[in-house]
């Protein structure tokens, strides 16, 4: 599973990353987590509100810091 976190490096983006890491380790799944900070790449997802979370190429959350509960659901539901 590929998880991308889109954001230009603001505090809300860091918080999102922290929660994704937590959720992944809690679920014990193997995931490749990448931060995307390049604006060109962020925009290619059609996202205007950062931070955003992309799982296997699909935008699942944008413009907010998702809760760990929500992330766990998104991560396990997609599998």
């Amino acid at each position: 599973m590929l998880i991308q976190i889109l954001g230009s490096g603001c505090s809300r983006c860091h918080e999102t990353e922290r929660r994704v890491l937590n959720a992944v380790s809690r679920l014990g799944i193997a995931a490749d987590i990448r931060k995307v900070t390049d604006m060109k790449e962020i925009m290619s997802f059609g996202v205007l509100g950062t931070p955003a979370v992309v799982i296997d190429g699909k935008v699942v959350s944008q413009g907010k810091v998702p809760s760990e509960d929500e992330l766990r659901k998104l991560l396990s539901g997609d599998k």
Binding site: G7, S8, C10, S11, R12, M39, M43, L48, T50, G63
Partner: peptide, 17 residues
């Protein structure tokens, strides 16, 4: 529209585009 200063750049680009 929800806005945080960290979204200013993608918004600006997206609007102009």
């Amino acid at each position: 529209t929800p806005f945080c200063s960290c979204s200013a750049v993608p918004l600006f680009i997206g609007f102009l585009e």
